[in-house]
């Protein structure tokens, strides 16, 4: 092996990654362009909305309530160091709506939805169902990917809004029952200090994360290798890619929204 071998391997890996980024970007562009062009598949969209939105409510709600509660305890303990316990309601609200609601909601949806989309579409690929769609004059991208991506982009902001509310309620529950806050004061402080953009920015993040989750599920499913192993690998890649991209996009969006 020559001395240049590690460099060559690094170069190959970099090129491979750039090629994958390019393919995903092209795939994303194709999906977006097909959203606005007929034929439309309303039934598939409805099914996807139920699968991605409605059925994710329990997991997003549970995540939010525990996170809101823990957040209240932490901020109370931290605030006590400089006698600022009163900030608990507003910081819980801001923390939930700006960061934790969308990010944790997005990650939970990634675990639940990116995996199931990738496994479903991957199985369709290896059992020739995607080929069958083509022979039945149906574009698989349009029939499978577009409804799922659109549904996730629409549903995740709603999930985030629900998660925000439940998370704040979790903070309130802990605040009132464990930290001796007055219930009315807690609620008043939450509302008074919360701005529209705190919530709005979180919802925009939610839409971006929903798009990422469904896109990764569809992309990896459609490019699944052969056999059960191929589907397994596609599912894993979809969840990992969706999670990492969510965190990266979260940083970028925060940078864009809150530094001026």
């Amino acid at each position: 092996m020559s001395a240049a071998a590690p460099i060559a391997a690094l170069g190959r890996a970099t090129l491979g990654m750039l090629a994958a980024v390019g393919r995903i970007a092209l795939f994303a562009g194709a999906v977006v362009s097909h959203i606005f062009r007929p034929p439309f598949y309303p039934r598939e969209l409805l099914t996807a909305l139920i699968q991605i939105g409605w059925l994710s409510l329990p997991v997003v709600g549970l995540t939010a309530i525990f996170t809101g509660g823990a957040l209240a305890l932490q901020i109370y303990a931290g605030g006590a160091r400089f006698s600022a316990e009163a900030v608990v309601p507003s910081i819980v609200a801001i923390g939930m709506t700006r960061e934790l609601g969308p990010v944790l909601g997005g990650l939970m949806v990634a675990a639940r939805v990116a995996s199931s989309i990738a496994a479903e579409i991957g199985t369709m690929k290896v059992t020739e169902q995607i080929d069958a769609l083509v022979t039945l004059s149906t574009n698989p991208l349009k029939y499978l990917a577009v409804p799922r991506v659109l549904a996730a982009t629409l549903a995740v902001p709603i999930l985030v809004a629900v998660g925000d509310s439940i998370g704040i309620a979790g903070g309130w529950l802990v605040g009132v029952n464990r930290l001796d806050f007055n219930s009315a004061t807690y609620i008043k402080n939450t509302i008074d200090f919360l701005e529209v953009w705190d919530v709005g920015s979180g919802l925009v993040k939610g839409a971006a994360f929903g798009f990422i989750v469904a896109l990764m599920g569809c992309y990896h499913g459609m490019n699944s290798g052969r056999g059960a192993q191929g589907v397994g690998r596609a599912t894993k890649s979809a969840v990992v890619a969706a999670s990492v991209l969510i965190l990266a996009a979260n940083y970028l969006l925060t940078e864009v929204f809150f530094t001026s």
């Binding site: 059992t127 020739e128 069958a132 022979t135």
Partner: peptide, 19 residues
């Protein structure tokens, strides 16, 4: 493509039904 495929029917070896 669409007009071309509309002229064909295909039975796949594994049936390939949409589950």
């Amino acid at each position: 493509r669409d007009a071309f495929l509309a002229r064909f029917g295909m039975l796949f070896q594994g049936a390939a039904l949409f589950d």
